[in-house]
Amino acid sequence: MKKKNRLQLDDNGKLKHFLTIEGLNRQLLIDILDTAESFTSVTEQTVKKVPLLRGKTIVNLFFEASTRTRTTFELAAKRLSADVLNINIQASATAKGETLLDTLRNLEAMHCDIFVVRHADSGAAHFIAQHVAPHISVINAGDGQHAHPTQAMLDMFTIRREKGEFHKLNVAIVGDIRHSRVARSQIHALSMLGVEDIRIIAPKTLVPTEPDAFGVHVYHDLREGLRDVDVVIMLRLQKERMRGASLPSEHEYFQLFGLTEEKLELAKADVTVMHPGPINRGVEIDSAVADGPRSVILQQVTHGIAVRMAVMSMAMQSHLPDTAEGAR
């Protein structure tokens, strides 16, 4: 894990790249949450801008389609007064290897400061961080089935706002954990922030190999797993990631693992329902729950902007010249 540490943090332990939650530390996660908290007021002002990243150029480098994540990164960058460039490169056979490095070299030559990267290959953000010029920060906006750390942090931000503390919570993640980069990052973040009871609920075909390595409790029965939980995170059923015969039908999946009002009764009375979106209504979650009083699904989207502002501004701080560091 040391390697990751070195890659993501600079010599002063500040965030340089944000690639995965693994290898970071609790204090740094709390700093991200606190910084995001300070930015929430910006998004509520009439003039929704602060000049923190004025003159900086942020490139949204999306090799995989995305609307929500790209848009919130773009808004976050603009609210920090940065210039934003959106580049969509549909992952094809040629958008790999040499071409990826060549793309990076070209963007470097345009003097960009932050690459926000989404890519279908696990490890793509690591690869890019290892090969970019030293003045550039890389933020992982989702790589394959590996990590989606800003999504996890906006979820942590939402949980903290709803519940205050982390350590006494029971949190359940339901759905396609095996193929989910979101779930992986959430599990690491929850455990780093002190949540002791992290449950994953899914049929065996959607549970990751060796779940014990993640420090989670595995349930194959939604009712059993929901008992007394404070937070339930529903995952999107990622049909595009399915390889082979993982599920018989959406119908049977909803019957067994779809979240309904009736099943939610088993959780704590003040349970919070979350979903990273986009929702498949009637597949993993009933509309009554998604739109119900315990759902914070839309707040999550709003929080995504503040959290991404926090991560981008922190990553840029690590590039302040040493003299400025010394003057403090």
């Binding site: 696990s122 490890g123 089935q145 590996h146 990590a147 992986r184 190999t209 060796e210 390595a213 993640f214």
Partner: peptide, 13 residues
């Protein structure tokens, strides 16, 4: 290898 490390790295096993 389909195992703990591949699972963590999100690489198909």
């Amino acid at each position: 290898h389909e195992g703990a490390v591949g699972s963590r790295l999100g690489l198909p096993g």
